[in-house]
């Protein structure tokens, strides 16, 4: 096998799936870090985002790329509302209750998507897009855009967290919520902001999953465990960790096919996860150990 083949058929697809996992994992890791629970509805939130974009493409005849930011905004709003209605009142209770609530929300979101959009697999645009060759590298514009948008979103988010007041407040909440509150950080606003970011990125993850394959109502749920693995792998609460974790999981899944039966693609993510937990429980980027 030539090196170029390895890159075209294993590394590039791995990086694309990895970027998608990363976008989902960022939301998961932020919620984990700041609000301190595992959000099991994240996958279905991604599904919702993907279908909202589909609805915009279908009804307003928008280009998918124009629909993406609108879908991200709508999903962010949905996320804030979901938090308000279903999670907020459990804030002072044991976190396990919020985890259960998020499972219920996952079921509800999926059923809404199924009722509104049906269960047939759908696509943003029909037909086949053959790759163009960039000096042997086979790439499609949608893949370039996926990668570029994911990178852009991540860089923007990291800059936001590092340099803005709100970003600093979020990091403070993540490090020590009590202390943050004493220092005058507005808990509620930070929570809302977390959901806006998580919802928007989940929608982006769902959208890219949909545009690189097809949309189906189980797409988010199926990717959820990989996203969790990515978040933990990178270190809880660390955005850059989630990104690296996502890319690692995406790459390993694709490369595992070289040595293992394809049925075990998903298992490789977990094997890595468990190994990482054994040798370095705080994750690659030294996240929190809850």
């Amino acid at each position: 096998m030539s090196g170029l083949e390895l890159i075209n058929f294993y590394v590039i697809p791995g990086l694309i799936s990895g970027s998608i996992y990363a976008l989902g994992a960022i939301g998961i890791t932020l919620i984990f870090g700041i609000l301190r629970y595992a959000h099991f509805a994240h996958g279905d939130m991604a599904t919702l985002g993907a279908y909202v974009a589909l609805g915009l493409v279908g009804s307003l005849a928008l280009s998918p790329w124009v629909a993406l930011p609108i879908a991200m905004a709508i999903t962010a709003l949905v996320a804030v509302v979901l938090d308000r209605v279903f999670y907020r009142h459990l804030e002072t209770r044991p976190k396990i209750l919020t985890v259960m609530a998020s499972l219920g929300v996952a079921l509800m979101l999926r059923s809404v998507v199924q009722v509104v959009w049906g269960v047939d697999p759908q696509v943003y645009s029909t037909g086949i897009v053959r790759a163009e060759s960039y000096g042997g590298l086979m790439l499609r514009s949608r893949e370039l855009i996926t990668f570029a948008t994911a990178t852009g979103l991540v860089l923007f988010l990291m800059a936001f967290l590092r340099y803005t007041r709100w970003g600093k407040a979020m990091r403070a909440m993540s490090d020590n919520p009590e202390l943050a509150r004493l220092c005058g950080v507005n808990n509620e606003a930070v929570t809302r902001l977390t959901w806006v970011i998580a919802g928007a990125l989940a929608a982006a993850a769902g959208f890219f999953l949909g545009i690189n394959t097809e949309l189906n109502t189980m797409m988010g749920w199926s990717a959820l465990l990989a996203m969790f693995a990515a978040a933990i792998l990178g270190g809880v609460g660390r955005v850059e960790g989630a990104v690296v974790g996502g890319l690692v999981i995406g790459l390993v899944e694709e490369l595992s096919v070289l040595v293992l039966p394809s049925q075990y693609k998903m298992a490789t993510a977990f094997v890595i996860l468990i190994l990482i937990l054994l040798v370095r429980p705080q994750g690659i980027f030294k996240g929190k150990v809850l």
Binding site: I232, A267, F270, I274, L277, L290
Partner: peptide, 22 residues
């Protein structure tokens, strides 16, 4: 896995269960 606390244990056990299933 019992060395991990709460949510980590959860993810690790989900992983083990998925591996068993596969």
């Amino acid at each position: 896995t019992l060395r991990f606390r709460s949510d980590y244990l959860a993810i690790a056990t989900i992983g083990v269960a998925e591996i068993i299933r596969l």
